[in-house]
Amino acid sequence: MGFFKKTVHHAKLNVPALVQVAAIAIIMIRCVDVLMVFNLLGWRGLLDFVQRSAQTWSLTLVFLGSLFLVFIEILCAFSVVKGRRWARWLYLGTQVVATGYLWAASLGYGYPELFSIAGSSRREIFHALVMQKLPDLLVLFLLFVPAPSRRFFRLQ
């Protein structure tokens, strides 16, 4: 063998189906979100949004923060399949941050308008926010509640 050491990487084939479904759902939810933004704004509207976001530091930070959050969520999706405990907690954290910002922006405490939910009352906004975040809540449920998911993260 001499100078060369063989490193053997064993694939973890015992990933519960619920964890796999959750990871795929995270990626698909983010992809559909991006497609819906493109559909809503179109290319011209998207370029205008990026230009508006680059006009002030606060809007630029919100825009870059939202992109960073999407990348973190996708990283979490790949990491939960590997059994990384921190990934599901980080995903929970991203959802708390995103939901909190959406709620605040919808009540008029944040910018831009794209990151807010329209509604005539707090109750209406809250209902729309819960409906919008329902897929993410389901993913969190799949990662934290079923016994096979909890056992998988405990063993890793």
Rank of each mutant, 00 (worst) to 15 (best):
1 M>Y: 14
2 G>Y: 11
3 F>N: 10
5 K>Y: 09
6 K>I: 14
6 K>H: 13
8 V>L: 14
8 V>Q: 11
11 A>R: 13
13 L>N: 13
13 L>I: 15
15 V>S: 00
15 V>Y: 04
15 V>R: 05
16 P>N: 06
17 A>D: 11
18 L>I: 15
22 A>L: 06
23 A>E: 04
23 A>K: 08
23 A>C: 07
24 I>Q: 02
24 I>E: 04
26 I>D: 00
26 I>W: 05
27 I>H: 03
27 I>R: 04
28 M>Y: 14
31 C>L: 15
31 C>H: 11
34 V>M: 09
35 L>I: 10
35 L>V: 05
36 M>R: 08
39 N>R: 15
41 L>K: 05
41 L>H: 02
41 L>D: 01
42 G>W: 12
43 W>M: 02
44 R>T: 07
46 L>Y: 10
46 L>S: 04
46 L>R: 02
46 L>P: 01
47 L>S: 11
48 D>M: 08
51 Q>V: 03
52 R>A: 07
52 R>Y: 11
53 S>H: 01
54 A>F: 11
56 T>N: 03
57 W>L: 10
57 W>R: 11
58 S>P: 00
59 L>E: 14
59 L>P: 00
60 T>D: 02
60 T>K: 04
61 L>I: 12
62 V>G: 01
62 V>P: 00
63 F>K: 02
64 L>M: 14
64 L>W: 14
64 L>R: 02
65 G>P: 00
66 S>H: 12
66 S>K: 12
66 S>R: 07
67 L>F: 08
67 L>P: 00
67 L>W: 14
70 V>P: 00
71 F>W: 13
72 I>N: 02
74 I>K: 01
75 L>V: 10
75 L>F: 14
75 L>N: 07
75 L>M: 13
78 F>Q: 09
79 S>R: 13
80 V>C: 06
81 V>L: 14
83 G>T: 14
84 R>M: 08
86 W>Q: 05
87 A>F: 10
88 R>W: 10
89 W>E: 01
90 L>D: 04
91 Y>H: 07
92 L>N: 02
93 G>A: 13
94 T>L: 01
94 T>K: 05
95 Q>K: 09
96 V>N: 05
98 A>S: 15
98 A>F: 07
100 G>W: 08
101 Y>P: 07
104 A>H: 10
109 Y>W: 15
112 P>D: 08
114 L>G: 00
114 L>K: 00
114 L>N: 00
118 A>K: 15
118 A>V: 13
119 G>A: 04
120 S>C: 06
120 S>V: 15
122 R>C: 06
122 R>W: 11
123 R>G: 10
123 R>N: 07
124 E>K: 09
124 E>G: 04
124 E>S: 10
127 H>R: 13
128 A>S: 13
129 L>V: 08
129 L>N: 07
129 L>T: 09
130 V>R: 05
131 M>E: 10
132 Q>G: 05
133 K>Y: 10
135 P>K: 05
135 P>W: 08
138 L>Q: 00
138 L>N: 00
139 V>Q: 03
140 L>I: 08
140 L>M: 13
140 L>P: 03
141 F>H: 07
141 F>I: 06
141 F>G: 06
142 L>W: 12
142 L>P: 01
145 V>N: 03
146 P>R: 11
146 P>Y: 15
147 A>W: 12
150 R>P: 01
150 R>F: 03
152 F>V: 08
154 R>T: 15
156 Q>M: 10
